[in-house]
């Protein structure tokens, strides 16, 4: 919820956002009508992947940053891969 409110306030002020969240939060993300969300198949508390899994963390982050470029409307929700 908190991050959802941060995203909405920043977008309103002209700063783009992309949220990386675990799939468990999918309903919350949808209800908050967020601009760009990348959902990951990871456990709660580890949205970027497991400890020291640098490759997975990088892939997730890269996919999220790509959404900044490719999404054209509010409510863009994409799964990890």
């Amino acid at each position: 919820m908190s991050v959802g409110h941060v995203a909405r306030a920043l977008e309103e002020a002209g700063i783009a956002t992309v949220v990386i969240a675990v799939k468990s939060f999918e309903a919350r993300m949808k209800m908050m009508s967020l601009p760009r969300v990348l959902l990951t198949s990871q456990l709660l508390g580890r949205p970027m992947g497991g400890p020291y899994d640098n490759e997975k963390q990088s892939k997730i982050l890269t996919a999220a940053i790509q959404l900044l470029e490719t999404s054209k409307r509010n409510g863009t929700i994409q799964m990890e891969f």
Binding site: R8, E12, A16, M31, M32, S33, E69, N74
Partner: peptide
């Protein structure tokens, strides 16, 4: 169920 918004802002880049 928490905050439910019908629509949201979107800043295009």
């Amino acid at each position: 169920k928490n905050f439910d918004y019908d629509d949201g802002p979107f800043h295009s880049l």
